[in-house]
C-alpha cells in the first residue's frame, strides 16, 4: 500500500492550484523515494514536472511502485475541502481504484476522509536530458508574476533575454511596446528579494505569455523562481518546494522559421 502524511497540507493544495488548469489528467508516480509527476498540456507545448520527496513527509510508506491516475480538477475539488492548516494524508491500496485523502485539523478535533476514484492513464513521459543552461536567473517569484501579467495585457509573446547585467522581458502589440529589465541585485537585505544571474553566454528566446502566466500560479509555493535558458531549448521555470522537492515547468520556445 501507499501512504503519505504531509504536515503542511497547504503545500499540496498550492501544487494543485498551480497545475490544474494546465494539465487535465496525470499519473502520480509513487515509489519509496517519493511522489513524482510529469505531464504535458494538451498542445504538448508545456510540461509540468513535480517531485515531492519521501523525506518531506511526516510519514511515508510505499510498498511497491504505483501510478495513481488522477483527474486534477477532481483532486482540486477534494483538496479545497481541507483547511489551510490541516495535515493531509494520501492513501491508496496496491490494487485499488481509489485514493483517500484524510484531513486532520491542527488540534485533531476534526478528521475528514474523502475518497476519489482513480482512472487509467496512458502517460507519455519525455526524457529530459541534464543540460548545462547558458543562463540561469533566480528572482523573486512575485516580481516574475507581476512582469508576466503586465506584459500579457500588451502582447501575446515575450522575448526573454539574459546578459551579465540582468534579465529583460519585452513584448509588443497593437497598442505599443514594453521592455522591462531586472538587474542583478545581491545587495538587498532579504535573500528572497535578490535577483542573481549566472551566465555562460547571452541568450534571447521568445515564449507565449499565456503559458508563462499559467506557470505563475505556482508563486505561492516559493518566494523565488529560477529561470533556466539555453539557445533553442525549452525554458525551465522552477519553484523549489521547501524540504520536499520542486515544481518545474518547461515551455517550448517560438522560433523564427
Amino acid at each position: 500500500m501507499f501512504e503519505g502524511r504531509l504536515l503542511q497540507g497547504s503545500l499540496l493544495k498550492k501544487v494543485l492550484e498551480a497545475i490544474k488548469d494546465l494539465v487535465t489528467d496525470t499519473n502520480f508516480d509513487c515509489s519509496e523515494t517519493g511522489i513524482a509527476l510529469q505531464a504535458m498540456d494538451s498542445s504538448h507545448v508545456a510540461l509540468v514536472s513535480l517531485l515531492l520527496k519521501d523525506t518531506g513527509f511526516d510519514h511515508f510508506r510505499c510498498d511497491r511502485n504505483l501510478a495513481l491516475g488522477i483527474n486534477l480538477q477532481n483532486m482540486s475539488k477534494m483538496l479545497k475541502c481541507a483547511g489551510n492548516d490541516d495535515i493531509i494524508t494520501l492513501k491508496a491500496e496496491d490494487e485499488g481504484d481509489t485514493i483517500t485523502f484524510m484531513f486532520e485539523s491542527p488540534n485533531q478535533d476534526k478528521i475528514s476522509d474523502f475518497e476519489m476514484k482513480l482512472m487509467d492513464i496512458d502517460s507519455e513521459h519525455l526524457g529530459i536530458p541534464d543540460t548545462d543552461y547558458q543562463a540561469i536567473v533566480t528572482m523573486p517569484s512575485a516580481e516574475f508574476q507581476r512582469i508576466v501579467r503586465d506584459l500579457s495585457s500588451i502582447g501575446d509573446t515575450a522575448v526573454i533575454g539574459v546578459t551579465k547585467e540582468g534579465i529583460s522581458f519585452s513584448t509588443g502589440g497593437d497598442i505599443g511596446k514594453a521592455n522591462i529589465v531586472c538587474r542583478q541585485n545581491t545587495n538587498v537585505d532579504k535573500e528572497e528579494d535578490q535577483t542573481t544571474v549566472e551566465i555562460h553566454e547571452p541568450v534571447s528566446l521568445t515564449f507565449a505569455l499565456r503559458y508563462l502566466n499559467s506557470f505563475t500560479k505556482a508563486t505561492a509555493l516559493s518566494p523565488q523562481v529560477t529561470l533556466s535558458l539555453s539557445k533553442e531549448l525549452p525554458i525551465v521555470v522552477e519553484y523549489k518546494i521547501e524540504k520536499m522537492g520542486f515544481l518545474r515547468f518547461y515551455l517550448a520556445p517560438k522560433i523564427e522559421e
Binding site: 498542445s43 507545448v45 508545456a46 519525455l126 531549448l233 517550448a252 517560438k254 522560433i255
Partner: peptide, 14 residues
C-alpha cells in the same frame, strides 16, 4: 514569423 515549437521537437518520448 516565429512558430510555436512543441516539446517533442526537443525531447524524446520515453
Amino acid at each position: 514569423m516565429s512558430s510555436q515549437k512543441s516539446l517533442g521537437d526537443f525531447f524524446q518520448l520515453r
